[in-house]
Each structure stands twice: as structure tokens, then as C-alpha cells.
Design a protein around this nucleic acid. Sequence first.
DNA 1: CCTACCGATCGGTAGG
DNA 2: CCTACCGATCGGTAGG
Lengths: 195, 195
Amino acid sequence: MEALGNLSRKEQVIRSAAELFREKGYAASSMRDLAQKLGIEAASLYSHIKSKEEILQSLCFDMATEFRKSLAEVESKNYTATEKLRFGIIGHIQVMAKDLTASAVFMNEHRHLSQPFLRDFLLLRINYINRFKAIIEEGASKGEFKDTIDKKLAVMTLFSSLNWMPMWYDPSSKIDPAELGQQLADMLVNGLKKG
Amino acid sequence: MEALGNLSRKEQVIRSAAELFREKGYAASSMRDLAQKLGIEAASLYSHIKSKEEILQSLCFDMATEFRKSLAEVESKNYTATEKLRFGIIGHIQVMAKDLTASAVFMNEHRHLSQPFLRDFLLLRINYINRFKAIIEEGASKGEFKDTIDKKLAVMTLFSSLNWMPMWYDPSSKIDPAELGQQLADMLVNGLKKG
DNA sequence: CCTACCGATCGGTAGG
DNA sequence: CCTACCGATCGGTAGG
């Protein structure tokens, strides 16, 4: 993680806003709160950003871009469905781990986007989810995965686990993001049961 | 689900508020929004409730009570860890399914509770999570579950899956809450892998 | 359950 | 980046 000093003023504003939005939620965070965090007056924020929502937009869409890049790379390889799922999970976790704060905002605050941004965001998300669902379906049809589990349930369980990670993962813990991804993939593919 | 007509006026206020909080989030929901939903003036709400936050408090703590009741019953039985986990999951899902709206608010909006309510709520939650963690640890030590998976990761994955359910589960779908709980437990215990 | 209203705070602009 | 400010909206109260 870089020091704030290495970031442009606009990037500092966005990063501070991300922390604020994560802590208090977007709607409960005021521009005066944000200004205070940065040691300036609220009106001064508007020389760096156009509006409060513009900050949310860049946080949400920048994360979305990273997730899509990661998944596209996994899809481009000649992997089995099991491998695609495993590396897809690891990639998703690593993208989140690069910015846990932005990840938490991405997950919890995107609903405060106004139209047409909200619609665009949800389309990106459903596309991403469907590509993971396709991997699970491929695995089921090729006999790698059970065919008995409901595919929607499987993919939503996967997503729930991935998306809540920023809420409890401690980046200073012994388990690093790559290993976290490995273990999460293992748990979802192989389950808790011994054997 | 009962018709609104069978509820006291106070219960109607709380139920409408739950829908509003779920849709827009607590902070972005105004008392004027809520009054409009009920066809009255904002000031009139205060003859039924003391404050906006009182509504959130009753939603959060009523759900917490239901969850604890369900888990206590599972713990009281002479089950193996695998059975306790399975019935704990099914119970949790069934409690949520009884009121998906309140469940979504419980999960997403509790952070807007003020002190000391927030502290009390978080203590209840950590206690509940730890009791599930104890079940997983018991299963690992008795050889029912793998000992290789990080217990914190396992229990947080479990909770993520449970708590996101209100976001995607369609109560009018073919799969009913009991079966949803069964499948979710199966996926977490046995994994996606065939065999 | 209503009218009338309060002080506080909101996102944002004008002009420098 | 600041001072000065705007109209809108907020949760809530008084009094009926």
C-alpha cells in the first residue's frame, strides 16, 4: 500500500472517501466528513471531483474492470472447469486483496449509484456471475461436479463467500491472499467433510 | 405472509419501514418516504414509534432473537457435529425465509444502530458465529471434518452464504426454504465435486 | 392523525 | 483552496 503522499490529490480524495464510505456507508457520509478527513473545507473538494457520486462511480467501475480482467485471463486458458473455478476464485480474491476498502464499497454501496450508472453496473455484475455459472455448468456436464446441486444456489454461495471476504479478512494475518483463495476454492469444491 | 390489515398500526409502520430500508438503505430512507408509503404525514409516524432508529432496533433485535432460538434448539439435541451443522444451517435459512425483508435489513443496516445498541448487537452476533465455529471445531476434532481448513475461513464462508440468501432467493421458486437449507448444507459439507 | 414549524445539516455554487 | 452562501431536506416537537 502506497503512502498518501504518492497519490495525486484527486486520488487522495477518492481513497479517503472509500474509507469513509466503508465505515459509515455512502448515504451517511457527508462531504463535510470527507473534507475534515483531508483537512480542507467541504467546498474545496469540488476542485478535484465533480460530485459525491462521481467518487462512488469511479470506485465501483474501477473494481469491476479489475474483476473482469482477472476472469478473462482465466477463461483464455485451456483449463478444466475445476481449474477455471479454482483460478477464478483465486483471481477474484487477489483483486479484492489489492484494495479491501474499495472492495467493501463496491459490494455494499453500489446501490446508491444513480441511473444510468446503476443499470450499467448491474449488467456488468450479472455478466460476471453468469460466466462463473457457466464454469460450474461446464463442470457439471463434464462430470467434474455433481449434477444434483442447483446451479443458481451454487454460484450465489460462491459469490457470497467471495464478496464478504473484505468484511472479515485481516491482511496482516498469517494467511496471505493467494492461500486464502486456495482454501476458499478447496472448501467450495471439496467441502468440509473429511476424505 | 399475513395481509397488512391483520397487523397493528405499529407493526404496519415497522413492516413498511423494513421494505423501505431494504430498498434504499436506512440512511437514505426518510421518515417522509415512510409516511408516504403509509398514506399519512411524517409527523403522524411519531404517535406509533419513538424515533427512526427505534424501528431499526426492533427489526435487528427481533431477528437476532429468532436466530438464537433456532440455534439453541439444535445445540440441545444429541447430534453429531455434521448433523448440528446441517440443522443449524437449515434453521437459520428457515428463520430468514419467514421474513426475507427483515433479514436483509438485519444483515445490511445494523451498522446504523447507535450505541449501546450497536455494541449489544455485535456481541450477540459474535456469540452466534462462535457457536457455529465450535460446531465446526468439534467436527474437525472428531474426524468428521477436515482438520486442514482454517476454522475462521470456514465459519465466515458459511455465514456469507447464509446471510446473502435474502439478496437472491426467490420465495416463489420451486425450491422451498427447507430444501434450500438442505442443499446449502450439502454444498458446504460435501462440496461441488462429484463423488 | 393533522397543521405548523424548528434547528441542523445536506450537496453544491459563486467568486476569488 | 477559501469565505460566504443557497435552496432543499432531514428527524423530530408542539399543540390540537
